[in-house]
Structure formats: structure tokens, C-alpha cells
Amino acid sequence: MATLELSLPEEVEQPVRRRRRLGFLFWFAICWIVIVFVLAIFAPILPLQNPVDMDMLERRAWFSSEHWLGTDGLGRDELARLVYGARVSLTVGLCAPMIGLVAGGALGLLAGYFRGRFETLVVGSMDVLLAFPPLIFALAVVAYLGQSIPNLTFILGFLGIPAFMRVSRAATLTLARREFVIAAEALGASHARILLRELLPNVLLPLFAFFLLGVAVTIVVEGSLSFLGLGVPPPMASWGSMIGEGRESLDVTPRLAFLPAVAMFVTVLAFNLVGDTLRAITDPRQGAL
């Protein structure tokens, strides 16, 4: 039989804040992202040459004090095109996953919480969207609406919605029957309150980690589309279109394809690294019990 002891006021020990070592790679990734952003944002006021000015006498010129990274097949300054290309890649790379994050995240949250017919409808329509060939969709939109950065962003963002919906719904499903959600219901919280206060903060983290992954993927996909000629309209530069143009002189001047490829590779890697690290350090369960 249980004997009841006198309850002692429990001591709550002071929190011990341990500094986590983030490592060299994380800081390298952060530095790279900051540099790329600064260059992209301030491109118009930096002492760069005009990225579309051609100099037919200086075609495929080697590195020089005038053209730091040389010139491309039409004699345009490679460094200026890289920096202006970063503007396009980052704009599309950040805005498109944002569309997926907001629309897909909200749909997944609602589907995972309310279940029933609504969930069937959402999941079904997302499956249809996933089954539709993305390249055909991109071609159709570009053919009807024209080639522009907003259209490109819309295409890539729209195609990202099903993936974000799945991540958000999966996270919501595991949380929605947890006791703290039932507790909120028992307290008389409205559905909106449960969704925004109890579920959203917990779903946002996996979504954000997936968002950074989405940024990386979108930059690559934008490059592929530009490479195929479905991306930004020439003569505007983007990393993908630069690789595409560099392909023609791959045997003579391979650097024209490699320089934008390296820029894209390092940027994508940096986003992935930061995403992984942020997910790891902000997980509250880590080190708990």
C-alpha cells in the first residue's frame, strides 16, 4: 500500500546554458551566403561593368585587370554576369519555395488537423499535381504567359506545393493527437487557436528546414530551366543560362561553364549546411530526458 510522504517543494535547478560548437563549415556557409547576398543586392551600385555590354574584340578573354574573370563568348564581363546572375538565382530560389511554404504548409496543416473529406481532397489533388510532368507544365506556362522572372517563380513555387504539403501534413498528423493538443481542446480553445498556437510552432521547424532544402533545389532547377532556354529571357544572365551558353565553347574555354557551376554548387551546399545545422540546434527535444 502506498504510504503518503510529506510533499517536499521541488528544487528547480538553474538552467545550464551550454554553448554549442557550430564548426568551421557552418561559418563558412554563412559567410558565403552573406557575400552572395551583399553582391546581389548591391550589384547596381558596385563598380561592375554592364553585364550585357558586348565587346567583340575581347571575346573569351583571359583574366585581366579590366575583366577580372575574363569575358564570355560575346565579350561580356564574366564577373558582372555572375553577380547579376546571382540576383536572378536568389530571387527565384527564395521566392518560389516561399509560395510552396505558405500554400503547401497551410494545406498540410489543415489536412492533418481536420482529416476527413478535406484531407482526401487535398491529398488527392496534390497527387494529381505530382503526377503531372513538371517540364510540360513549365513549357505550357512559358508558352502562354511568356518568359519572365515572375512567371518562372510562379511555376517553380507551384510545383513545390505538394512536397511542402506532405512535410506539413506528416508533422501535423504526429502532433494532432498528442495530449497537449487535446489539452488545448479541453481548455475550450478554438480550432484557429489550436492550429496557430499549438500546432504551427511545432510544424514550422521541419517546414523551415525543408524550405532551405527547397531553396537549394530551386536554384538548381532554375538553372536547368534556363539551360533549356525556358528560364530568364536573354540577354539577362542567370547561372543556369550562363552554363548553357558556356556549353558551346566547352572545348575552348571550359571556365565559362565552370565558373557559374561552381558558384551554384557552393551556394546550394551552403544553404543545405545552414538548414541542417539550424534544424539540429533548434530542436528542443535534443538532450531532453
Binding site: R178, E179, A184, A186, G188
Partner: peptide, 24 residues
């Protein structure tokens, strides 16, 4: 009406850790 009434009736769960939102 039910939400108002729920303020007079409360619930305590078996798993105390799962019944607190880990992010709040």
C-alpha cells in the same frame, strides 16, 4: 456554449510531458 462550460471541467493526462507543448 460547450467552450464556456469547459472552463468549469478540466483534465489531467497520464503523460505530463506530452501534454505540454514542447515549443511554448
Amino acid at each position: 456554449a460547450l467552450r464556456k462550460m469547459r472552463q468549469r471541467v478540466q483534465l489531467i493526462f497520464q503523460d505530463p510531458i506530452a501534454s505540454l507543448n514542447p515549443r511554448r
